[in-house]
Design a protein around this nucleic acid. Sequence first.
RNA 1: GGUGCCUUGGAUGAGUGGCUUAGUCAACGGUCUGCAAAACCGUCUACAGCAGUUCGAAUCUGCUAGGCACCU
Length: 307
Amino acid sequence: MTYNLITILGPTACGKTRVAAKLAHRIGTEILSADSRQIYRGMDIGTGKDLADYVVEGRQVPYHLIDIAEPGYKYNLYEYQRDFLEAYNIVRARDVVPILCGGTGLYLESVLRAYRLDEVPQNPELRAHLEGKSLEELTALLATYKTLHNTTDVDTAQRAVRAIEIAEHYRQHPVAKRAFPEICSLTIGLDVSRELRRDRISSRLRNRVEEGMIDEIRGLLTKVKPEDLIYYGLEYKFVTQYVIGELTKDEMLTQLEIAIHQFAKRQMTWFRGMERRGVHIHWIDGAKSDEKKIEEIERLWKTTVGE
RNA sequence: GGUGCCUUGGAUGAGUGGCUUAGUCAACGGUCUGCAAAACCGUCUACAGCAGUUCGAAUCUGCUAGGCACCU
């Protein structure tokens, strides 16, 4: 069995992008992003796009799935998978192995574990019918469609409505199935100790504030509603709250920093869970130099081909 | 030098002579196939130290230490 994808994952601020770009440059391939926020145009500093990192030795490494949606748009997992496949096929057509790089666990997992998702458009009649029902009623209704094997679907009424919509869709279109290529990924995780992770997150945040992150968000607020920006979380949430006067600058900085640390922890939790669900991750030491990391990845590539 | 007040888990902060934990935040662990940088769940048992009163004290008394306020 040969690999047809290299995945580089890790928590925020672990240096994924740089390693992925350098590796892509060296082996002449392209990058497919797996980041639920970097898809948005104009959300650059806050999402840590680091677009400059895609220029290696003066050459632009092609990347995909970044800057593909307007801020305020509600992108979802189905769309990600659809867009991923399109980009994947484009790169594969060049007969190279793409590098999937990002930190959005759900997006990564939808590729690595080949979730089968159908396009489920909104169903206005159903939504109108469900309007005003309590979460309890919606949960009971969802239970008539399927066994409730998680609680994420019924966290909020909004999610429960969507879950029912999807269940209703599958009831009406039971055989619809999307073709999904056999993905066999060499999956690399960048492992950074808690202390180092925290240091990097904190200093990176300071840098981004200096680079104009707050102005970026002020600009976005001229065309995106505050609540939509707040929904995006982290930088967009706390800086928006600061800009509209709900937080002082100090409160914003303190709370944001804590929130990013918590986010990084949740990312690691996700990756561990993903391993339990059967995704094999080769962890490499994130404290090493980029060159060492790339050597290690290349060594893994050679020695594990055919495992 | 004198008088009074305070001292609770990593932080903050309520409370009562004994019965089950305050709460909040942080930290840590987890959940997860459709907004995931979201949403949600779990864990963390402390009352400054010593001596005494009491069947029983973190809660009462005394001393010691630290802090705060006021007085000469």
